[in-house]
Simulated scan of single mutants.
Amino acid sequence: MLGEAVSNILQFHSYLQSRTDVRVRDYPLMQSPIEMTTILAAYAFFSVYVGPRWMANRKPFHLNTAMIIYNLSMVLLNAYIVYEFMMSGWATTFTWRCDLIDTSSSPQALRMIRVAWLFYFSKYIELLDTVFFVLRKKQSQITFLHVFHHAFMPWTWWWGITLTPAGGMGCFHAMVNATVHVIMYFYYGLSAAGPRFQKYLWWKKYMTAIQLIQFVLVSIHISQYYFMEKCDYQVPLWIHLIWMYGVFFFLLFSNFWVQAYIRGKRLPSANHNPKQNGSLAEPITVVANGKHMENGNAHHYTNGKIVLGKVKEI
């Protein structure tokens, strides 16, 4: 029985290797799903078990400088990803309608493959969002959905660029997501810079609107597939999954917008003062959009996930 199971796993592994696009096979973390699954499992284990226990009897780290550098670096990285997506087809040869997967080895196709892989790899860098929470003892921010989203995104994208690295209309949502991350990480960078930058963060309310626009654009673009007389997109399963993702998150963010900005139901304030190492923890006020305001200083945002109506991290 065990031998048969092992044999089936090995056969499936060989099948994946044979299906992996040869143009992306030599990129880091693309040789096997085992590597990336191991990394993401270790991330989840650290986030919910090892990290919190290691920090239990330690004071939180003050990482404002590191967070500023990290967030602004992510702004630059995502801006570069957007530029490369545009130059790889979206601003040059794509029709923005039924754009098929490019199976050639043309310079444009190879450029698209590189940026698709870079977008995938950026999701591993974003795991640092959670590491910062752990080291700063913001464990309340590390919800199940937060960890699931950070782990699930790179896991699913591995399958996407394994089969369709030059994804045509199926990569539009990645370009839009990277665009949103330019804005979001810029906001987080200013927030981490301290109270003197608060006057420049008057647009915090519109962060949710930016998210809604993202999901509207993704959903409208991918919905064209269902109304075209003919579109021979090579992997229609991706179309269905992208459409479901866009609609699902649009509904969740819309519900938050209604509750927070139309009905005025802000999230309740709560002061948490647990004694740790003989001192009181800083009071935290929870405000709309899942942001946190500590002692009147910078708002700390999680990067775009949703938990029971709260906007967590993006």
Rank of each mutant, 00 (worst) to 15 (best):
V6M: 10
N8Y: 04
N8P: 00
Q11L: 13
Y15P: 00
S18N: 09
T20P: 08
D21F: 03
R23W: 01
V24M: 02
D26T: 08
Y27H: 02
Y27L: 14
M30N: 04
S32K: 03
L40Y: 03
Y43S: 04
F46L: 13
F46A: 05
V50S: 07
W54G: 02
I68E: 04
V75F: 09
N78D: 01
A79C: 06
Y83I: 02
W90N: 04
T93Q: 12
D102N: 12
D102A: 06
T103H: 13
S104T: 13
S105M: 13
S106I: 06
M112K: 10
W117P: 09
L118S: 09
L127Y: 07
D129A: 07
F132S: 02
F133P: 00
V134T: 03
L135K: 12
K138V: 08
Q139A: 08
F148P: 07
F148Y: 15
P154R: 13
T156Y: 13
W159K: 01
G160R: 05
T162K: 07
P165M: 08
A166V: 06
H173R: 01
V176E: 02
Y188K: 13
S191F: 05
A192Q: 06
P195C: 05
Q198W: 02
L201V: 04
W202I: 09
M207N: 14
M207D: 03
I222N: 03
Q224L: 14
C231A: 05
V235M: 04
L237T: 11
W238R: 00
I239A: 03
H240I: 04
W243E: 04
W243S: 05
F249Y: 14
L251P: 01
S254L: 15
W257F: 15
Q259W: 11
R263H: 13
K265M: 11
N271I: 15
N273C: 00
N273I: 00
G290K: 12
E294D: 13
H299D: 14
G309N: 08
K310A: 06
